[in-house]
Simulated scan of single mutants.
Amino acid sequence: MPTVLRWGPYRAFFYSADSAEPAHVHVRNGDMEAKFWLHDLSIAVNVGFRPHEIGSIIRHLRAHQPDLMDAWNEHFGN
Rank of each mutant, 00 (worst) to 15 (best):
I58D: 00
R11E: 15
L5C: 03
G8F: 01
L61N: 03
S16E: 13
N78D: 11
R50L: 12
I58N: 01
V45I: 11
P66E: 03
M32L: 08
E21A: 13
W72N: 05
W7L: 07
Q65P: 03
T3F: 02
G8H: 05
N78R: 15
F76H: 14
L68T: 05
F14N: 10
P9W: 13
R6H: 12
I54A: 02
S42G: 08
K35P: 01
I57Y: 04
N46S: 01
A71S: 13
H39N: 12
D67L: 02
E21R: 13
G77I: 01
A17F: 09
A20S: 13
E74W: 12
R28C: 02
N46W: 00
P22F: 15
A17Y: 10
N73Q: 14
H75W: 13
R59I: 03
G30D: 11
W7A: 08
R11W: 05
D31E: 13
A63L: 04
M1S: 12
R50T: 08
Y10G: 10
T3Q: 07
A12W: 01
A12V: 10
L38S: 08
G30Y: 10
H75Y: 14
E53I: 07
A34V: 07
V45Q: 09
D40K: 08
S42V: 04
D18W: 07
R59D: 11
D67G: 12
V4R: 00
W37T: 06
E33P: 02
F14A: 11
H52F: 08
E74A: 15
P66V: 09
P2E: 10
H26G: 07
R59Q: 10
E53Y: 05
D18P: 08
V27F: 00
A34D: 03
Q65G: 04
F13W: 07
A17C: 07
A23W: 08
G77F: 05
R6Q: 15
S19Y: 15
N46C: 01
D70S: 11
A20I: 12
M69V: 15
I43Y: 04
W7P: 01
N73K: 15
V45F: 04
L41H: 04
D31V: 13
P66M: 06
S56C: 06
G8E: 14
E53W: 05
K35H: 08
P51I: 05
M32F: 06
V47Y: 09
R6C: 07
T3W: 01
D31H: 12
H60E: 09
A44P: 02
T3P: 03
M32N: 12
P51F: 06
R59S: 10
E74D: 14
L68R: 01
P9S: 14
A12T: 07
A63N: 05
N46E: 00
N78C: 10
A34P: 02
V27S: 04
D40S: 05
E21M: 12
F14T: 15
M1I: 04
L41F: 02
T3C: 06
V27H: 01
P22Q: 15
F49D: 00
H75I: 12
G30L: 11
A71L: 06
M69A: 07
H64R: 00
V47K: 12
Y15H: 12
R11T: 15
V4G: 05
L38W: 03
R62P: 00
F36I: 03
D67P: 02
I43R: 11
P2Q: 11
S42A: 10
N29Q: 14
H24R: 06
R59P: 01
F14L: 10
R11V: 15
E21D: 14
R11Y: 07
G8T: 02
K35Q: 09
V25E: 05
